[in-house]
């Protein structure tokens, strides 16, 4: 059974914005990245799944239960994008209230709260009032809240927006830890590196449309790009699998080039080709495409296919 399943799920705000026609299925034990620029509808989608928004059309299921029902939210955790918690509570009281709402048996509550506080690195600080928490601390306590009930699926809406680099790594480790425990993590993000480092599967959304979905590596491999440094101009003609060459920078005796290839397998080929033609390579490094490039690639692809369809 799919952990999350939607069929043409659509949520618009009076016909505008939101997200349209999303059909996806998310399996067990993976980190699923929902990637898109600002305003593409990521939060709208998650909030619809959690029953906070009323779907305009289509249907969705969480763990087989139709969205909007209380049952569909029993084994779910959520960290909202605008994480605001009642600031008159202490971190611990907040977790206690949520434990109560999740019907965690009284005897296990204390232990479970200690566990999750530990997991998000808030041990010792959970007794402070939330009003005195920094933004990062609030986000951490929100994460603790999201995993409190040992959920089967956790929705994280930009979970590192307020965190420092160490915090980001902690969150990444937490996501991998959850995955290794067989949980599903649904990650909303507009940060390429965040998605890249943890996600097994990705959807790309743009202006309320789902552009493409698939395994992360496949989507990213729209093209292979490398940067090389040579000591002379490249005088030999380039093989056909090179789609683009540009000079990036000339510094004294060295020249830096950007080279675009058809796919990853062409990287060793081009290195060998240049070396055998007597060009000395001082540096070769693969360039991860920019998120915008990946987006634009798939967005254009989608437009083209739409054009072909009609």
């Amino acid at each position: 059974m799919n952990v999350i399943q939607t069929n043409s799920l659509t949520k618009t705000y009076n016909g505008k914005g939101g997200i349209s026609d999303v059909t996806l299925s998310v399996g067990e034990g993976i980190v699923y990245g929902f990637l898109g620029p600002n305003g593409s509808g990521k939060s709208t989608f998650v909030r619809t799944l959690l029953g906070l928004l009323q779907p305009t059309s289509g249907e969705g299921y969480i763990l087989g239960e139709p969205i909007g029902t209380t049952k569909s939210r029993e084994k779910v955790g959520y960290l909202p994008e605008l994480f605001r918690y009642p600031d008159w509570l202490t971190g611990k009281q907040l977790l206690e209230a949520h434990a109560e709402l999740c019907k965690i048996p009284v005897r296990q509550r204390k232990k479970r709260i200690e566990e999750v506080v530990e997991l998000v690195g808030m041990t010792g600080r959970e007794k402070g009032r939330i009003s005195g928490f920094s933004k990062g601390m609030s986000q951490r306590i929100g994460l603790a809240c999201a995993i409190l009930n040992d959920p089967k699926v956790v929705f994280l809406d930009e979970p590192t927006s307020a965190l420092d680099p160490i915090g980001r790594k902690d969150v990444r480790d937490l996501m991998l830890y959850l995955r290794d425990q067989g949980k599903t993590v649904f990650l909303n993000s507009h940060l390429l590196y965040e998605v890249e480092s943890v996600c097994d599967h990705v959807s790309i959304v743009h202006q309320g449309d789902m552009i493409v979905q698939g395994p992360w590596r496949e989507l990213m491999m729209i093209e292979a790009q490398i940067e090389i440094v040579t000591d002379q101009p490249i005088s030999v003609p380039m093989p056909t699998f090179v789609t683009h060459v540009e000079k990036i920078k000339e510094e004294e005796a060295r020249t830096r080039w950007g080279i675009q290839l058809e796919n990853e397998d062409d990287i060793p080929k081009i290195i060998q080709y240049l070396s055998s033609n007597g060009i000395a390579l001082y540096e070769v490094k693969p360039i991860t495409p920019h998120l915008e490039d990946v987006f634009m690639h798939w967005v254009n692809q989608k437009k083209e296919s739409a054009y072909v369809d009609h």
């Binding site: 909030r47 906070l52 959520y78 605001r84 009642p86 999740c102």
Partner: peptide, 14 residues
């Protein structure tokens, strides 16, 4: 308006 309600309503309560 403060979005505080989100975290309560996402729990299994109607």
């Amino acid at each position: 308006s403060s979005h505080q309600i989100d975290t309560w309503l996402m729990r299994p309560i109607s």
